[in-house]
């Protein structure tokens, strides 16, 4: 579905490339020169830093917010700790990855269409044994130490370009939330 939309985007892009003024520059020039995201999804402007305002205008970032262009994730976290509005459950994983210097190509071998990513790709950075420890106190059950074992597909819960979901809850009714992502529109 998303993939088809990407193709449609390319078709429209080919026709309308000369009319680039219709679409703001940052939404066309994307991560590392690849136009890989969906026409209606706001995107970050560069892999090295997030120019939030370029996509989100003033609806997402307060007018008096420091200029974010050039900032990376550590810069965001410097202010957005627990006390101030937390970014943890607000920023999509696509954003947090990019702000941490992980660009589209790092996960998607093919950009068009950018298919689903295998868990092995996630595990090059995120080690199952570390996750198991990180969530050992989550109640009523450690989601990374379930009857399915430690090597489930990450994308069952953690979606990078869509709202995450609690896979356990297809059978259980666990109260914990997946730390991430509502898509910011």
């Amino acid at each position: 579905m998303m993939i088809q939309r990407t193709s449609e985007f390319f078709r429209r892009l080919a026709i309308g490339i000369g009319l680039a003024g219709l679409v703001s520059f940052p939404t066309l020039i994307l991560c590392h020169g690849y136009i890989s995201v969906h026409a209606d999804t706001p995107t970050l402007s560069s892999p090295s830093g997030g120019d939030c305002q370029a996509c989100h205008k003033s609806t997402m970032v307060p007018a008096d917010h420091p200029k974010t262009s050039g900032m990376a994730m550590p810069d965001c976290i410097a202010c957005h700790k627990q006390e101030t509005p937390s970014l943890g459950n607000r920023m999509p994983l696509s954003h947090t990855h990019l702000l941490n210097g992980v660009v589209c190509r790092d996960c998607h071998a093919e950009i068009d269409p950018a298919g689903y990513v295998d868990k092995g790709t996630c595990m090059t950075c995120h080690k199952p044994q570390d996750l198991l420890i990180a969530t050992r106190d989550v109640r009523p059950a450690n989601p990374h130490d379930s009857h399915y074992g430690p090597e489930l597909d990450c994308d069952l819960c953690h979606h990078v370009h869509a709202p995450s979901e609690n896979f356990c809850n297809q059978c259980h009714a666990f109260g914990f939330t997946i730390p991430s992502p509502i898509i910011i529109r």
């Binding site: 009857h147 399915y148 489930l152 597909d153 069952l156 059978c171």
Partner: peptide, 10 residues
């Protein structure tokens, strides 16, 4: 399915 084990694993 996207997970192994069917009903057996639950």
């Amino acid at each position: 399915m996207r997970v192994p084990g069917g009903n057996s694993i639950i």
